[in-house]
Design a protein around this nucleic acid. Structure first.
Lengths: 331, 331
DNA sequence: ATGAAAGCGCTAACAT
DNA sequence: ATGTTAGCGCTTTCAT
């Protein structure tokens, strides 16, 4: 493997100068710069990252914390984060965390072990002490798709979005509306709040009884949630699922029971993952601007890493209600 | 950050001994080993990877080459590869490649730049010189889900599987069967071969005219493929899609045209991605044992990296035809 | 069984 | 503008 010394020797100069050229520093005579560049081209020299990393005390890698379910939503969001991050010269490293206290703690340990330049969370850790520890480590952290006080966050206004989604149902004439949500995750809590708010504004009582809580945002739990709902009593004409994946699972059960969507039951999701537009029926949902969220997240983290400790910024992006085929007016 | 020197100093011994303990080497008196372990526990010491990497000339990271579409199939497979790889102490780094010559070349450059311990390909590069270059680099490489001569490969027998899928259609009485496939990727070629073989065995002529080739395995291209098929003439009763994603796109178009699946047209996919079982109708498909493929791939690569250059092993895993709701007997 | 010393490839502070 | 030097944290001979 050709090293900086090889280049220096062949160019008849010192490694320092080669380093200056490689890093685009000033104070190098044009002629030498050219010569070095040419040599690099010829030899295919590439700086050794481990070495740079050691002296610079930076790893050039950022950790991405995500749920070990690695569901479609997260996978899509990751794609949108990875690219801009790469353009800033970062690599990404995954940290999967389960929905358990012990897994969260272990995640923190692993996060510490790697010498990360920064952390992006696209899945929230429930234990608040996690964030305290990160703060102590002075590790730049930004959260994407949810708001974490004290850290830069890029997200939409989930409560408002949920409210709009439910309101869409209400405007369609629905009064008996159920929700499949999560109570362990703050995103679930916020979406549930929006649900309650819309119901209350419409004068619909007993909202609390209308929501069923499941543990994770997966199609499996969507099925489970709907089964539970049906077990209690099928007296609803519409369902709001806290995520598209939940909605997809719920629709699966509905279909299997011979209950038609949207004729018998309208369904609204949340997130607008790719597949939602391929479903039959196409899912009505809230679109999160994943592309922009990814881009902003990368930008802000980079700024945070390079520019210093000005945390706390909270960026709220616009969402959009996408009305498709899974909802219709109450007959 | 606590370093090996700190531990050594506190334990009143030399860094060498600490290193021995950390790496589980022999020739350390039990008492000292205990002491060091205790200190490590207390201080939360973790070896600096960059430093180890430099002296060991290993990066502990393996590159994963995948299509920049990062479709559902790849996302799922990645999950199954990442875990076992992690248990061997490797990290993963993504290398997305587009379906273009230039992107493939650039991928090779980036692959070289990183000091990778190994490479896993879950997407094939079309340019054969790519593999020559990797061979020259003496970089351990294993391919997952497709066979690359000269490298360890873990995959199913795609041609046989495709044959079985099509045969299922034939057994159902279908004679007018179309295929949506790819000709740029060898997996597409192999699946197409299976399609031909089944048709020929059944005495169905003009097989070549029955397949439409698209560029990528995405739902979008599935839609495109079906639209083209319909444009030519709707004289088929069944369609075999080279992947589930393609099938999903195809079914979308069918549905939009008011053509029922499976009553009017039976559809078979390939891969059995998670979502296929949630579709309406549930997709009949070929199941690739992703879990096992992922596990084996990680194992074999690890062995390859640590054990030396015994490339060439070719592991063929069993597949399974999963008959669900998207196919039915020809009426 | 243990320590001293060298060196992995690079950058930056300090000379000049 | 350029070179010399030290050192990042670790592992590994080579002594002892």
């Amino acid at each position: 493997m050709v090293s900086i010394k090889d280049i220096a020797r062949q160019a008849g100069i010192s490694p320092s100068t080669v380093s200056r050229v490689v890093n685009g520093k000033k104070h190098v005579r044009a002629a030498k710069r050219e010569a070095v560049l040419k040599l690099i081209e010829e030899t295919g020299y590439v700086p050794n990252n481990a070495a740079r990393s050691m002296v610079l005390q930076r790893s050039f890698t950022v950790g991405i914390v995500l749920a070990d379910t690695f569901n479609m939503f997260q996978r899509q969001l990751f794609s949108f984060i990875e690219r801009p991050l790469g353009s800033f010269g970062y690599h990404t490293r995954f940290f999967f965390v389960k929905f358990e206290r012990s897994s969260e703690e272990e995640c923190l340990t692993r996060l510490k072990a790697e010498k990360l330049d920064g952390i992006i969370m696209i899945h929230e850790i429930q234990n608040p002490s996690f964030y305290d520890s990160v703060k102590k480590l002075e590790l730049p952290l930004v959260t994407a798709t949810f708001n974490q006080p004290g850290f830069p966050s890029i997200h939409i206004h989930e409560e408002d979005a949920a409210h709009d989604a439910v309101n869409h149902l209400i405007n369609l004439g629905h009064r008996k509306i159920k929700m499949i949500s999560t109570d362990g995750l703050s995103s679930g809590t916020r979406r549930t709040k929006g649900f309650f708010r819309a119901l209350e504004a419409a004068g619909i009582k007993g909202a609390e009884e209308h929501v069923i809580f499941v543990r994770q945002y997966t199609t499996e739990f969507g099925m489970y949630g709907m089964r539970e709902l049906l077990l209690r009593k099928h007296d609803f004409s519409a369902v709001f699922a806290a995520t598209d994946e939940l909605a997809i699972g719920a629709m699966r059960v509905l279909k299997d029971k011979g209950i038609r969507v949207p004729e018998d039951v309208s369904v609204v999701g949340f997130d607008d993952i790719d597949i939602s537009n391929y479903f039959m029926p196409r899912l009505t949902t809230i679109r999160q601007p994943l592309n922009e969220i990814g881009e902003r997240t990368a930008q802000i983290l980079h700024k945070y890493i390079t520019g210093g400790r000005d945390a706390g910024a909270d960026m709220v992006l616009p969402y959009q209600l996408i009305i498709r085929e899974s909802t219709c007016a109450l007959k």
